[in-house]
Each structure stands twice: as C-alpha cells, then as structure tokens.
C-alpha cells in the first residue's frame, strides 16, 4: 500500500479510509474514529442521558471493530454501520442500566453553556424558540424523535434510517411525514402564542 503522511488521512475519501483500515492500517483506523466520534457520541446521547456510558460503549464498539478489521465487510455506508452498531450496543446495555429505557420518556436535555458564537448571534427570541422546541420535542414519541434526529442531525436518508432502526423504509417515511406535520402546526401556533405573551409582558 502506498505510504501517506498523517495529514493525508484527513483528505482521504471515506471508502479509501475504510479500505486502509481493513488492511490493518492503524492510522487509518484512528482517522476513521476521529471522523465519526462526535456523531456517534451525539447519537448515543439521544439514547441515554448517561454520557459516560456512551463514551464507554463507543470505545467497546470501536475496539471490536479493530479486532475484526480483517473480516468486516465492504461497508458502503460506514456511518450507517457504526450508528447501527452503537444503537445495538446501547440497547443491549440499557435494560440493565437504571437510567433509561427506550420506551420511557426522552432524557431531559442537559443545560449546556451556549457557545460564544451563539451568544453573539442569538437574540432573545432565538432562545425562546429553542425553549419551545424542547417542549415540542418532548411531546413526540421516542421513535419520532429518533427519526427526526437521524434525518436532521445525521443527515441520513430514509433507507439508511430504516437500516439503523430496523424498520421498513415506508414506515420511516410515514413516521417522518407525521412528525413534520405535528411539528409544523405546533411550531407556528406556539410561536404565535409566545409572541402574544411577550407583547403582553412589555
């Protein structure tokens, strides 16, 4: 295999990175992990509020992957494959774990400090909208929340979402359609309401 420098790994196409990893290239494996770490962690947080459990699960998952690098398939969708594996791993861990189960209400959002960028760009109404969205999200079912998340944050298509969640593609489409309809109608009316409250409080 052609030798490349550490910085070159950042520019490799996902497919080539995967091929190099399969051939036992440890740096390619590191680069692969680096690329997917944040989306894996972020997805894990949708499944459980226990962040340390998520970090551990990702380590386990990736060590497993390394152990089987010679036998893993030609994953066409590396990201889908990793997200699906993490989901499987967490769901296996969760029934024994007191903090959460998938059928239970969603974990409450942690109060993250706003980024500096946001502080500068945000205005009052923006924060109000974010608060509103938290409420709307809480009114969706776990499944709805998950499809919306995979579609929006992970930017996956219906087929990939179906693979990860073990659903039919058509069910994903229906679920998404319903979610948007609810979100859209409630979004407008809630915002209007919020506006009225603001006007009255001035």
């Amino acid at each position: 295999m052609e030798r490349i420098t550490a910085t070159d790994y950042k520019t490799l196409a996902p497919q080539e990175l995967w091929q190099r990893f399969k051939a036992g290239d440890k740096l390619a494996f590191g680069a692969l992990a680096q690329v997917h770490y944040r989306s894996l962690y972020n997805y894990g947080l949708r499944l459980t509020a226990d962040s340390e459990l998520v970090w551990d699960a990702i380590q386990d998952l990736l060590v497993d992957l390394w152990d089987h690098h010679q036998t893993v398939g030609d994953a066409v969708f590396v990201k889908t494959y990793l997200l699906k594996s993490l989901r499987y791993k967490l769901l296996k861990l969760l029934p024994h774990h007191p903090s959460l189960h998938l059928d239970e209400p969603a974990p409450t959002q942690l109060p993250y400090a706003d980024s500096i960028e946001q502080q500068i760009i945000d205005d009052e109404s923006h924060t109000e909208q974010t608060r509103l969205l938290h409420q709307l999200m809480a009114s969706l079912s776990k499944r709805q929340q998950e499809v919306l998340y995979l579609r929006f944050y992970q930017n996956l298509d219906n087929h990939e979402i179906a693979q990860i969640m073990g659903l039919e593609r058509q069910s994903v489409a229906n679920l998404l359609h319903r979610t948007f309809k609810e979100l859209r109608s409630q979004w407008s009316s809630s915002l209007l309401l919020a506006l009225l409250v603001l006007v009255r409080s001035v």
Partner: peptide, 13 residues
C-alpha cells in the same frame, strides 16, 4: 426550526 434544532441537538463533547 433549523436554529432551534441545532441548539437542541448540541452536545457537551
């Protein structure tokens, strides 16, 4: 919605 969703999905990593 995009702004609100981006905020909602922020993580602490």
């Amino acid at each position: 919605l995009i702004h609100a969703l981006n905020d909602h999905y922020q993580d602490d990593a």
